[in-house]
Amino acid sequence: MGSMEQWWGQLDSATRQWLVENPGCVILPRTVVHAINTVIHGNLGEDQHEQLELSDEDRQFIRSRAGQEQADGPGIDR
């Protein structure tokens, strides 16, 4: 289905903000999974609780975005 880096620009600002504010999150809550599923017009393969475990690649990408936000200041739409 792709990676977080591919979808980042299509995610709504509230979802991106949540991800940058929670860069250590390993399992995404269902509200975030739903927002991503809406963007990709598919299903990420979440568990029975509608949560999703992020891949190492996706966690690294989110941590880099969070680090960029700290360096650049607010403005997740970059």
Rank of each mutant, 00 (worst) to 15 (best):
R78D: 11
G67S: 10
P29G: 08
E5L: 11
G24N: 12
N37S: 07
C25M: 05
S55C: 07
C25W: 01
E53H: 09
V26H: 07
Q17S: 14
E21W: 09
H34G: 09
E5D: 14
H34I: 00
I62H: 03
I40T: 09
P23D: 07
P23W: 04
E21N: 15
D72V: 08
W8A: 05
Q48F: 04
T15I: 03
Q60T: 12
V20N: 00
A71K: 12
N37G: 08
V32K: 10
L28C: 07
E21T: 08
N37F: 06
S13E: 13
Q17F: 11
D72K: 11
R30I: 01
G73I: 11
E46P: 01
S13H: 04
E5S: 15
S13W: 07
A35L: 06
G75E: 11
D77C: 09
V32F: 04
L19Q: 06
S13P: 07
R65F: 05
P74V: 12
P74F: 08
T15F: 04
L11D: 06
A66R: 07
W8N: 05
I36F: 03
H34L: 07
A71C: 07
I36H: 00
M1A: 15
G75N: 14
F61T: 10
W18N: 00
G9S: 12
E46G: 09
E50A: 13
L54I: 03
G73F: 09
G67L: 10
D56G: 10
Q68S: 12
G24C: 02
R59D: 04
W7A: 08
N43P: 00
T38S: 13
W18M: 02
Q68E: 15
Q6I: 07
S55M: 12
A71S: 12
V33G: 02
V33K: 06
P74K: 10
R65D: 05
Q70P: 00
I76N: 14
Q48E: 12
H41F: 05
G45A: 10
M4C: 01
V33W: 02
Q6D: 15
E50K: 15
W8M: 06
P29H: 09
W7K: 00
T38W: 07
Q6T: 09
V39S: 11
R59L: 04
I62T: 01
L11I: 04
G24S: 07
N22V: 10
Q60S: 11
G73L: 11
Q48C: 06
L52P: 02
N43C: 11
R78Y: 10
E53M: 15
H41S: 13
M1I: 10
D12C: 09
S55W: 02
S3A: 08
L54K: 08
Q10P: 00
M4N: 01
V32E: 01
M1Q: 05
S13N: 09
R78L: 09
R30S: 13
I27A: 03
T31H: 13
L44S: 05
S64P: 00
I27L: 10
Q60K: 15
P29T: 08
V39P: 07
S64D: 15
